[in-house]
């Protein structure tokens, strides 16, 4: 195991992309970062720059206007990179895609239509523990490669 991989897997930096959610999932992510669940004690750090980030955490339904933005942000991240879709809206569309042929008019498809997603965290909103488990799975799947 090279030292780069060791450093990456021990301390992944996450970038939080908010794509038209209701803020429920964002609050749960905030809860995971704050003292109660304090993910910094296991090395997960929040960064506001996608160029430094290893993992992107996406919430929300991804409206049509946000599709080019999220693609650009994904391309700005350096390899290897992972994406975690948090919440029912980001994983499948949830209540906004009740009828598959007739979604709401701003709906740009769930996250996996715009960018490849590694791990899905269902829930509306998911518990902070579930988000931590999801990020841990994403490290195993996307960042543990050589």
């Amino acid at each position: 195991m090279g030292w780069k991989k060791w450093a990456r897997t021990r301390s992944p930096w996450i970038f939080h992309a908010h794509c038209g959610g209701c803020n429920g999932c964002d609050i749960e992510i905030a809860a995971a970062l704050t003292p109660r669940y304090d993910v910094e004690r296991i090395g997960i750090v929040l960064t506001n720059n996608p160029r430094y980030a290893d993992i992107m955490v996406v919430t929300g339904i991804v409206p049509k206007a946000m599709v080019p933005v999220i693609k650009r942000v994904y391309n700005q991240m350096t390899d290897p990179k992972g994406v975690v879709a948090v919440g029912a809206c980001a994983t499948t569309g949830g209540v906004f895609l009740k009828d598959d042929d007739n979604p709401t008019y701003t709906f740009g498809g769930p996250v996996d239509k715009a960018i490849p997603v590694d791990v899905y965290v269902p829930g509306c909103p998911p518990k902070p523990e579930a988000i931590i488990v999801g990020i841990a799975q994403c490290i195993q799947k996307a960042l543990a490669k050589d």
Partner: peptide, 30 residues
């Protein structure tokens, strides 16, 4: 992954809670 855990299915069930929302939260998947 689509469910929003509103509990309307449990509320409407004509049998006595034949569908019930459990305590399982760990549904993380790829």
């Amino acid at each position: 992954s689509r469910c929003i855990y509103c509990g309307r299915c449990q509320l409407i069930c004509p049998q006595d809670e034949a569908i019930k929302l459990s305590q399982n939260w760990n549904l993380v998947t790829d």
